[in-house]
Design a protein around this nucleic acid. Structure first.
Lengths: 212, 212
DNA sequence: GCCAAGCCGTAACGTACGGTACGGTACGGT
DNA sequence: ACCGTACCGTACCGTACGTTACGGCTTGGC
């Protein structure tokens, strides 16, 4: 789907980006308690400008989520010299990246507000926050991982019928209960060492399950 | 005010249970948009009674979540005649039960409100909603699954070092991206057939990974 | 110098909602 | 019959916050 055309059509000025960064910071600090006044004060701009630029509070939130999403576009996978080591390295790097993003304060805050918003849903609006996060979260991860999985199958390193199923299993092995626990406020450390270890373990398990 | 802080063993009258059921229904319908007035109207009780019984809005929410939690206590596992078939059946039933609960409207609504609440957190209060859901969700699942895993290991059917790690992997294999997608508002069906199939697949994969 | 546009800061408005107060009713105990 | 208790229904209050309006400042074009 090329719905991104309309999104990228909204060219943001530097000033507006600063405002969105301020909103992002507030979202991380105070969660959904973010008010228009607080954003205006933090960004040293007037509320009038906020409403002119983003329409209303929902528009500001949407723009903020999209702004963050636009900053974390993933890096592509190198296609040359694809052997087992490359597959393992790719999967491990992928899993580690994902865990790092997932356990970051920004991701937690954004997912929280999106989940909240998905609850009080007014069907009929164009793009809701939940959809945006979904699109730039799990779905984006699936799109980025798909070529890796297909390359692995082409190279005879993996065996699966549906790419989707394989991806979702990998997702489960990587994320496990980490995300839901973080979203529910369980404060537990996920240091760099643990991330690396989990990435290796998930990759290893995945290879066992999907070995030809 | 007479401190009714003995939430742990509060005996609820039938009337209060009715009120909490009304709150639960409203939570499912309208999410966090639930207001004290709407609960009072739905339950045909006065707001004064709400405040008398539950203290404040947070108390009502907490009582509601605990009330639901008290209704879904899991069934224990039979310990006799524990062979491979019993292990497989136990895991499969467990996974299916969990998926059923997880994808239910009530669970989604409760997890939503708990996640929302975990965002606007006032550290210092006793038990927060996120903690309660965590306790009755993933943690309860872990406690219930633990004896099954230990029995499996005793019987020589499974091999693992840390029960916790094994549980979390099983969790990942069962839940995958289902919960986060539902929380984010992705409307996708998870029919009985899919649940059964997923439960079987997750169990199968788990046995492969943790076979001695 | 002058004007218009864009923006900041702040005051003001309207409303939704948490929380409280109070009058009215049913009922069980004495 | 009288009283206390528990509760319903509703009116009311205070506040937070989304949204709008306005006065003053800066800047670029003429």
């Amino acid at each position: 789907m090329k719905a991104e055309l309309e999104i990228s059509e909204t060219a943001l000025t530097e000033r507006q980006k600063d405002v969105l960064d301020a909103a992002l910071a507030l979202l991380v600090e105070a969660g959904d308690k973010l008010t228009m006044t607080s954003v205006a004060r933090r960004a040293s701009c007037s509320k009038e400008s906020l409403y002119k630029w983003f329409g209303d509070r929902d528009g500001l939130l949407t723009a903020t989520v999209q702004w963050q999403a636009s900053k974390v576009r993933g890096v592509p996978v190198s296609r040359n010299a694809f052997d087992r080591d490359a597959l393992v390295a790719g999967l491990e790097r992928f899993a580690a990246d994902w865990l790092r993003v997932l356990s970051g304060k920004i991701s937690v805050a954004l997912n929280r507000v999106a989940v909240t918003h998905a609850g009080t849903d007014k069907h009929g609006l164009g793009r809701d926050l939940g959809g945006i996060v979904l699109e730039n979260g799990p779905f984006a991860m699936a799109r980025r991982l798909e070529p890796v999985l297909l390359l692995g199958r082409e190279a005879g390193l993996l065996k699966f019928e549906q790419t989707d199923e394989a991806f979702r299993t990998f997702f489960g092995l990587v994320v496990r209960d980490v995300q839901i626990r973080l979203l529910l406020g369980d404060r537990f450390e996920l240091g760099e060492a643990a991330i690396e270890r989990d990435a290796k373990r998930a990759t290893e398990q995945f290879l066992v399950l999907y070995k030809p």
